[in-house]
Computed example of a mutant assay.
Amino acid sequence: MKLILSLYFATYPDAISSKIAANSVALAKQIDASLHAVAINVDIPDVSNALSNYLLDLPYKIQEVEATSRKRSKVLLEAIAQEAEQGGVSLTTQELTAPPALMGDLAAKHSRYSDICLVGWAPADQTARMIAEGILFGSGRPTLLLPDSTDLGALGHVVIAWDGSRVAARAVADVRAFLERASRITVVTVTDEKPLPGEGIGERLALGLRTRGLVAEAVSIQAGDSSIGTALQEHALKIGGNLLVMGGYGHSRVRDFVLGGATEGILADLRLPVVLSH
């Protein structure tokens, strides 16, 4: 059965890098998936009054911002279409509209019809973070964060962050397509961050993966003075990992996400492609 990847990006207040076009298509091609690219254009509510109309010409400024957003989405969708045609990847596209504060909720609602959701990631891009959090905690689908600063290479070495939890197990199940194509899998357990459910949990998962015919090993590391998100990414890069897989911890408290330490560390400083599952 062919997987469906969905890519979500906003064009307000800034557009993501055009590199996301090549990277999302390259990812779909690697796992023989189809791609659905979704641009979320901004819809700014009209809060104008007579004074703002006179002094600021607010209605015109709103129309200008919305037109810029639509123009950016058209450019990016055309770039993705061109990449998909060249790469032989099946592509569909869609444009949605939402107020800035509801972009994450809208992305979560629509992403429930795909298998894996992609979000282009740039440092300090709060809109991308909002969309990623919305999908992660509201869609029931895994979220794959793609850095926009590097070209996506072969995801041959998959690194699994393993603590024996439900969300970690969910993450492993969600990336089966990547595991089946991996030349190497490393299960990493951080031993000094929190109590673990037992000894040898990483080796137990690695053994199960080897039983399934995959090449897998287990290692234990200590985070030390680093945050767990930083420690996991640094170790993954150190051993040549191309994709980090982990559970996404967090819950919503009056619509403000309260994130676990590892999830917050990843979202604050993304260094390689990361799959988060909740």
Rank of each mutant, 00 (worst) to 15 (best):
L102N: 15
I266E: 12
R210I: 11
V187P: 04
G164R: 03
R204A: 14
E85H: 12
I201P: 00
V65S: 12
A262C: 10
Q222D: 13
R112Y: 08
R141I: 03
G229D: 10
A22S: 15
I20W: 01
L77F: 06
S52K: 11
S226K: 15
V245R: 07
I16V: 14
A231S: 13
P45K: 10
L270W: 12
L96H: 01
S114W: 00
T191E: 14
G265H: 07
D256K: 15
L58E: 11
S34G: 14
N49D: 15
D43K: 13
L155H: 12
A169I: 04
V47F: 10
K29R: 15
S139K: 09
V187W: 02
L207T: 09
D148R: 01
L102M: 14
D14M: 13
R176V: 00
S165T: 11
G248D: 11
V119T: 08
D269V: 08
A107K: 04
A182L: 06
V175W: 09
A124E: 07
Q30C: 09
L243V: 00
A15Q: 05
P59N: 14
T263G: 06
L91F: 03
P197H: 08
S227Y: 02
A182F: 10
L3Y: 08
A171I: 03
M1T: 07
I160K: 11
Y12K: 00
L155M: 14
R255E: 07
A15H: 04
S165L: 01
R255P: 04
N49F: 13
L214W: 03
G104D: 13
A108K: 06
N23D: 11
A154I: 10
R129K: 01
A15R: 02
G120V: 09
K61C: 00
G120L: 07
A67N: 13
L35H: 10
G224E: 10
A236D: 05
I160R: 08
A124Q: 06
N49Y: 12
Q86L: 14
A81D: 06
I44S: 08
L232C: 08
G140L: 09
L56I: 15
S252D: 03
T186M: 03
I266S: 11
P142C: 09
L77E: 02
E203W: 00
